[in-house]
Design a protein around this nucleic acid. Structure first.
Lengths: 226, 226
DNA sequence: CAGCTTGCTCGGGGATTCCCTGATGGCACG
DNA sequence: CGTGCCATCAGGGAATCCCCGAGCAAGCTG
């Protein structure tokens, strides 16, 4: 817990976590002329980051999502466990829809892509420092799909909205089975399987067939049944 | 462009190609104190890079391997076609296993991971500027392996048997893109994408389309999302 | 250099799947 | 006893998958 003193003299101290030294330098250079913000520490690994957070007081942690050993999401969770009120801004290489949602679920206060223009990065940092939530436009849009449609989405996994039969087919899709294969396995008409696919897509906010298969494969492989 | 006082020494002019602004800043900062080297231009896309190379004289191009639209390998090829003697140093955030060999075969003069420490990056830049070849230790080792083992195809990862173009399409498949989407992204005919899919399936020993997508999704997620 | 292989690019055409619009019956809930 | 959700399936047009094939460029080989 930290008193939000709006003194001009007090600098906001940031820990930057990224396994790419050059990228860390980029962030430093980005904030070079922001007098009220200072990169107070750097970390390459999740373990390193946790060690530094224990040792010093930071006002914000900026972390890459794909670290060397641990997943960036796991780091967010660990940080939340250690310092619940320390905000974390997550950066990601790709605009992967999955990670934005997972990061926020894990307790991150912002999500931003590394492709973002510098001023947007600074804006995101300031916004999170003020205690607000930051979502880039693209991530925001993806969130809309899952959040707006149902407020229960944030706690429940989307897949839990599927019916038994739909989940069964979803899992088969994730194992690489085709429509006709599934129909044969389940002794159903191909048309029925197609109908289920369609309903699954609707419930999951997916619009194309390849995206559906991708979601199913990742679901099956990651066993995220919580 | 800052006017430099030293005139006896010609500054080496570098074009940096990367779709992450922050990373470009990192490189700039890295070379800030190297007086004989100057980042003379930045580019976000392959098309942008080609335009700049046509317009100005550069001594070196530093390029990321995974750009927004075009593959970094393709950019290397295009650059070689345009300016055969302009050296290119390729940076990658992935490990070397797959792309190092492809990059060099495409005409790159060096290959380096983004995780590399700053001094190593500077060393690589200088080495390539001198006309030498630079390979990071890990990449070096892998190259030797691939030469020594010769025709050892079975132990290699299946994916390594794919051609550049095939790998590119395989990755897009793993990101949930459909055939026509890929054709549009790569400015190809749908028929061509279908042909590539077919060849990938043959090389990977896959017989059905859903299995192909599953393999691609799992490969992509295991490759870079960890 | 002529021949061979590999990679990249497409087309034809039939089989299959995708996707939208319904439609039917069952079951639960209020 | 309507209303909603679920599971099942059909029709039909668009898109795809997948088998055939072909042309062209580049690189290797004898």
């Amino acid at each position: 817990m930290k008193a939000t003193t709006s003194q001009q003299e007090k600098q906001q101290r940031i820990l930057i976590v990224d396994d790419h030294p050059i990228f860390r330098k980029g962030i430093i250079m980005l904030l070079e002329h922001e007098d009220d913000i200072v990169i107070y520490g750097e970390a390459e690994t999740a373990a390193d980051a946790l060690r530094q957070v224990e040792r010093h007081d930071y006002d914000l942690v900026i972390s890459d999502i794909s670290l060397e050993e641990t997943n960036g999401i796991e780091l967010v969770k660990s940080l939340k466990a250690l310092k619940p009120h320390l905000p974390v801004l997550v950066l990601s290489m790709h605009d992967e829809s999955l990670y934005a949602e997972r990061a926020l679920r894990a307790g991150a206060r912002g999500y931003l892509m590394k492709q973002a223009p510098p001023d947007q990065v600074v804006a995101a940092i300031r916004q999170v420092l003020r205690g607000e939530l930051y979502l880039s436009a693209a991530a925001n849009l993806l969130m809309l799909n899952s959040f707006v449609s149902g407020r229960d989405h944030s706690t429940k996994s989307m897949v839990e909205k599927l019916s038994d039969r739909e989940l069964e087919i979803f899992e088969l899709l994730g194992k690489g089975r085709g429509t006709s294969m599934i129909a044969h396995d389940l002794r159903l008409s191909v048309k029925t399987v197609e109908a289920h696919r369609s309903h699954i897509k609707a419930k999951l906010g997916i619009s194309t067939a390849p995206e559906l298969v991708r979601a199913a494969v990742e679901w099956v492989t990651h066993q995220q049944a919580r």
